[in-house]
């Protein structure tokens, strides 16, 4: 089990490194693409600035506080996208018959799919999110405690895992409908957009569903409430507010189940 995990990680590193080397051979193109990614995702934040030229707060949150939510959400999505962004091309591979090639290699097909065409230029998006996040941290007058400091890596790690699971589930669906890759966007990019704003702007019922059904609030909302020292609109017990690891674990389990079921289906239909 541990051996298998280690060999999978090693294979991932080997594949990813190969793609990094390829992208670095075209340095100019790589630089342009990375800066491009930085600017594209930057416009998302400019849109928030435009809104704030008309208002002073949204849902009771100031610009800096929303920048904190935005940065956290975009950072987690960016990291997940870097790790396995090309998994969404599964349907395309199935249609072209090239997924078979991955199944005859001695490495898990999941690892190969994740590492396929690993794109270091996605650091552009991560950097942009990081800059906004860092600005928010500086601009906000946070009452730092050790727990709050620790909450920042906690937010990034578990938020990323949640998005990794959503990307995986979205890709696994393509074992059933190979041309429905866009469905996943609703949950990944949609989920990240949703989490860029305070939950106070959404109906309470929706926030409950986003906590207990599709646990997107654990990406950055509850960790941010703790760091920014804001009350939970749902008034949930604090134990629930710290349940990001549980949400991440449950979603990961669901993702693994979906992926396995998808592979099983593929291996009994061959298409």
């Amino acid at each position: 089990m541990v051996d298998a995990a280690r060999s999978d990680l090693r294979a991932y590193a080997v594949l990813a490194w190969m793609w990094i080397r390829v992208s670095l051979t075209y340095r100019t193109s790589f630089a342009i693409m990375t800066i491009g990614q930085f600017l594209i995702t930057g416009l998302d934040f400019v849109a928030i600035l435009v809104m704030f030229s008309n208002v002073d707060s949204l849902g009771g949150f100031s610009l800096a506080e929303i920048a904190f939510l935005y940065g956290g959400s975009a950072l987690c999505l960016g990291c997940a996208d870097l790790v396995l962004g090309n998994i969404e091309r599964l349907g395309q591979r199935i249609r072209m018959g090239t997924f078979d090639v991955m199944l005859v290699r001695p490495v898990s097909a999941y690892i190969q799919m994740c590492a396929d065409q690993f794109a270091l230029r996605r650091l552009g998006r991560i950097t942009q999110a990081g800059v906004v996040f860092a600005w928010a941290i500086v601009a906000l007058d946070i009452d730092w405690t050790w727990a709050r400091v620790a909450m920042i890596p906690y937010l990034v790690v578990f938020g990323t895992v949640i998005f990794l699971a959503l990307f995986t589930i979205g890709a696994a669906v393509q074992f059933w409908t190979s041309d429905a890759s866009e469905l996943a966007n609703a949950f990944t990019y949609g989920g990240s957009t949703l989490a860029e704003y305070p939950m106070t702007i959404y109906p309470l019922e929706a926030v409950k569903a986003l906590t207990f059904v599709l646990p997107l609030t654990f990406v950055n909302w509850y960790p941010s409430l703790f760091i920014l020292d804001k009350p939970d609109p749902l008034g949930l017990p604090s134990a629930v507010q710290f349940a990001a690891p549980v949400a991440a674990a449950v979603l990961s389990l669901a993702a693994a189940t979906c992926w396995r079921a998808g592979i099983r289906r593929y291996r009994s239909t061959g298409s």
Partner: peptide
């Protein structure tokens, strides 16, 4: 995956 180390496959119309 264990078998994959001991076999080789060429799909004529798709490259591996």
């Amino acid at each position: 995956t264990a078998l994959a180390r001991r076999i080789g496959v060429v799909f004529g119309q798709r490259t591996t």
